[in-house]
Each structure stands twice: as C-alpha cells, then as structure tokens.
C-alpha cells in the first residue's frame, strides 16, 4: 500500500479564524491514512502581496517551496489562495528561466535555492488523485442519505487552467461534486456554480462582493440545498461569517449553513458534530445535525 505523506501548509486565515476547517481536515485525513508533516518554518504564501509587488509574492512563495524541497515532500494546502500562489510560483519558476534566475538571486541572499522538485496540491486534488474514491468510500460508515447539499469549490483550484492543470474542467468542475457524493449526500446543481465569492476585494469594497454572495445564496436557496459545501477559507468566510451581514444589507433571510467539505466527510465517517466543531459555524446547522442524528 502506498504511503501518503505531505507537508501541510495551513496558511494564515485557517489557523487564525477557522479551527473548524483545520480540525476536521486533520481528522478525516488521518482516517484516510494520510500523514501530515508540519512545516518546519513558515511565512505567508504571498497571495496578499501579489497586487503590490509580484516579485515579493514570488519570493515569499518560493521560500516556502524551498522549505518543502528540503524535506522532499509535496505540499498539501487547505486554502485555495495558498494553493494558487504556491502552485503558480512552482510552475513559473520551473518553466521560465529568466524568472527563476531572478528569484533565485533573491533566495541566494537567504541561503536558499529553488530547484523545482516537489508538487503543490490542494486537499481536493489529494483526495481525488492520490487517496482515491475507493478508499474514501470504504471510510464512510454513516452515509448521509437524504441530505441535499450544493457545492462552491472556488476559483483558484480550477483557474487559471494553464497553471492548475489537475484535470478538472474549469467550466464544469466535478471533483468536489464527486467527493460530496461519496458521503451519501446528494449534490445539487444550481445556477452560476463557478461564480467567484468576491472575498479577495472585500478589503477595498464590500458592496460588490456582498451582491455577488447574495446572488450565490439565492441560487443555492432556489434548489433547496440544506447546506453549501466549501473547500476554501475565503469562500467560507464570505458565505458563513458574512451571511448575517448580507441578510441585513438586503433585508433577506437565507439561513443556509456553510460546511467545510471535511466536516461533511467527517460526519459520514462517523465523527460527531462536536468533534468536527460544527458549533463554530456562524450559521448554525441545527436542522442538518438533527436530521443526521435521527
């Protein structure tokens, strides 16, 4: 049996705000015999610095890649933003000699060198490509029959296609949908599934992302989904943490619980809602939990 072992890159947002994602992810990955090695050192992936200085982003990201290369381990991220930046940097530095030389020039000043020997994967890619459906199906002990959910995978695990290259169709992504179906839950289609959550610009403008999120929640409500499933801390915060504010801004009532995929899978594996920190969600999944416990 192949041993799956990754360097886990938590990023900043998950340990700061979303223990529910980290804890549920660690639990389900352990059940699936995936070994997580902690980063020996850490700095921000670089994502928030790309708008102000592309080279700063590349160098911050490359430093993390060098740390992973030293351990000779592929990186597993739980965050779409971290995945996007680390993966893009990994590809660009490997393929573009000029950029690589420039960034390696910076890295040599801190005693590092990018070699391009590891891969960067998001949790979804690891589950689909490395763990495999069979193994996940075997780990599902309490199938979530009769549960109807919708998914929002987020942009950066499928776009831009030229960098991501994990085989999922950016126009009609199915990886997360298939992962949801393994839990026994029904995964509903809805309008504009691939639409961005808008969170990256919330620091400079709230009106636009709020309208985008409102529309998303309307479409999810229209198909009567009992929950929205995400795999990114930014998307999650947009729809869960901000949902009450969106409701107030538009005089609406959604009440749609937003679960991390790892919480959904964890429930299907037989973990309790308490173990998976479902009580930490802003929109309380009360109905969903009582339906599961029946």
């Amino acid at each position: 049996m192949s041993e799956l072992k990754y360097l886990v890159f938590l990023g900043c947002v998950i340990p700061y705000r979303l223990a529910s994602y980290e804890i549920s992810a660690r639990k389900v990955l352990k059940k699936l015999d995936v070994e997580l090695v902690e980063m020996p050192e850490f700095n921000c992936c670089g994502f928030p610095m790309d708008p102000i200085n592309h080279d700063l982003m590349l160098t911050l990201a490359a430093r993390n890649l060098c740390l992973a290369e030293k351990q000779n381990l592929d990186i597993l991220t739980l965050c779409n933003g971290c995945f996007s930046i680390l993966n893009e940097t990994n590809k660009v530095l490997a393929e573009d000699k000029d950029v690589r030389e420039k960034i390696n020039g910076h890295l040599s000043e801190i005693g590092m060198e990018f070699k391009g020997t590891i891969k960067v994967k998001h949790l979804v890619h690891v589950l689909v490509e490395d763990v495999g459906f069979e193994k996940i199906k075997d780990a599902v002990k309490k199938p979530l029959a009769n549960l109807r959910v919708a998914q929002h995978g987020g942009c950066h695990i499928v776009r831009p296609a030229k960098h991501v290259n994990h085989g999922d169709d950016p126009e009609n992504p199915t990886m997360l949908k298939n992962l949801i179906r393994l839990t026994g839950a029904e995964c509903l289609d809805y309008m504009d599934e691939t639409e961005c959550c808008g969170n990256p610009i919330i620091g400079v403008n709230e009106e636009v992302p709020f309208q985008m999120a409102r529309e998303k929640l309307e479409h999810v409500r229209a198909v009567k989904a009992q929950a929205l499933i995400t795999v990114c801390p930014f998307c999650h915060m947009m729809y869960d943490l901000n949902q009450p504010r969106i409701e107030r801004a538009f005089n609406e009532k959604f009440g749609i619980p937003v679960l991390h995929y790892t919480q959904l899978l964890g429930l299907a594996m037989g973990f309790t809602p308490e173990q998976l920190l479902l009580n930490q969600l802003r929109v309380k999944p009360t109905e969903l939990v009582s339906q599961i416990q029946q």
């Binding site: 020996p40 050192e41 700095n43 200085n53 160098t59 911050l60 000043e109």
Partner: peptide, 17 residues
C-alpha cells in the same frame, strides 16, 4: 510553525518592497 522574520525582512528589502 514559527516564522523566520529575518528572512522575511530581507525578502521585502531585496524586492524593493
């Protein structure tokens, strides 16, 4: 994981940030 603040500062300086 602990940050390496010395390296981070250097990266900011090297990139003109």
């Amino acid at each position: 994981p602990k940050p390496n603040l010395e390296d981070v500062k250097k990266i900011f300086e090297l990139t003109g940030s």
